[in-house]
């Protein structure tokens, strides 16, 4: 709020139709902060901590981009968005990028005119049931009451799954994860379904996590990733390659602790990433050390994963699909060349 409320309101009438779609990068640099859309609160991915600082896996992507573009990982305005508001916020320019566990789908990419720059978490929709029900497979859920967190693709997947298996169910749509948890624990629904990562996070917060099981079926593919507006390819490239740099950094063993050493002694590709060789940064419209700052901001992909959602955290997700391709996972950063 550099301009005051009323002066802003007055001058806005005189604002030239300036910001066309293709200059987000210069807008961000001029503004000095990155407006990043996140969820209103999902522990592990994006949630304000007790001091009001945003923290989490999605938040880390925003911070890495801010570090790359603005030299300062803290120069981020986090804009909490709901399932309803996230796309408008991005389309109308209120935010520069959206890092809000958003599933990459055809409609969103093509019809809604967004550009998914990559995948930072491969997820899938799962089910959680109380152990006492004695259910061991999702195919036994005929007639169950299912709590769904609305606003994601979960409703569609659920309807598809139950239709495919000829089962009846009663959906109970719920706005926030906290309320879904309350409903589920009180027995108002038999099953809670959302992304498997969300289930793990929710279960971790229970008093007795052992009383609940996550069923083996994963009924959908949910590639979650950051997205930007369609048509601004320069900005899309910046976000895409920042994410790729984080992933590649893990592959090549660049961590936030050894980054300086790697910059001088690493392999040629590592040096290209870290800007000691070649001038990849200038091609993006940034300086040479953009990726070095992005990685130094919170560490490489593996470090971020371990810190926010990994097995040592209360959420306790294993890498699974999100391991590097060298470890049998799906993470595969294109070459920096």
């Amino acid at each position: 709020m550099k301009k005051t409320v009323f002066l802003g309101a007055l001058t806005v009438a005189g604002l030239a139709a300036g910001a066309a779609s293709a200059q987000t990068l210069s807008d961000v640099q001029e503004r000095g902060t990155l407006n990043c859309g996140v969820t209103t609160g999902l522990v592990g991915f994006a949630a304000p901590d007790a001091n009001g600082e945003w923290d989490g896996f999605d938040v880390a992507v925003c911070r890495a981009v801010a570090a790359a573009v603005l030299q300062d990982p803290t120069a981020v305005e986090f804009v909490p968005t709901t399932g309803k508001t996230r796309f408008t916020a991005l389309a109308s320019g209120e935010i520069d990028m959206l890092a809000r566990n958003t599933t990459w789908t055809f409609t969103r990419d093509v019809d809604l005119k967004f550009e998914f720059v990559g995948v930072n978490y491969y997820d899938g929709q799962g089910f959680m049931v109380p152990k006492a029900l004695g259910v061991s497979s999702a195919t036994e859920l005929a007639g169950a009451t299912v709590c769904i967190q609305t606003g994601t693709t979960t409703e569609l997947n659920l309807a598809d799954y139950f239709r495919r298996n000829n089962m009846e169910y009663t959906p109970v749509p719920i706005e926030t994860n906290a309320e879904a948890q309350q409903q589920y624990l009180a027995g108002a629904c038999d099953v809670y379904t959302t992304d498997a990562s969300g289930l793990a996070a929710t279960r971790a917060a229970f008093e007795n996590p052992g009383d609940h099981v996550v069923l083996p079926e994963i009924i959908s593919k949910e590639p979650l990733g950051p997205l930007v507006r369609h048509g601004d390819n320069e900005w899309g490239d910046v976000v895409r390659w920042t994410l790729n740099a984080l992933i590649a950094a893990e592959e090549y063993g660049i961590t936030s602790t050894n980054i300086e050493e790697m910059a001088t002694n690493g392999s040629p590709e590592v040096k290209r990433i870290l800007g000691t060789e070649d001038e990849l940064g200038s091609k993006l419209g940034l300086d040479a050390e953009w990726a070095r700052r992005a990685i130094a901001a919170g560490g490489n992909y593996g470090e971020l994963f371990a810190r926010h959602i990994g097995e040592s955290t209360p959420i306790g997700l294993s890498r699974g699909l999100n391991a590097q391709w060298t470890d049998g996972g799906l993470l595969y950063a294109p070459p920096f060349r």
């Binding site: 309803k84 969103r108 019809d111 809604l112 749509p173």
Partner: peptide, 11 residues
């Protein structure tokens, strides 16, 4: 105003 809006993005 809820699920349809979310699914189609037609705000």
């Amino acid at each position: 105003g809820g699920i349809t809006l979310n699914q189609t993005g037609r705000a």
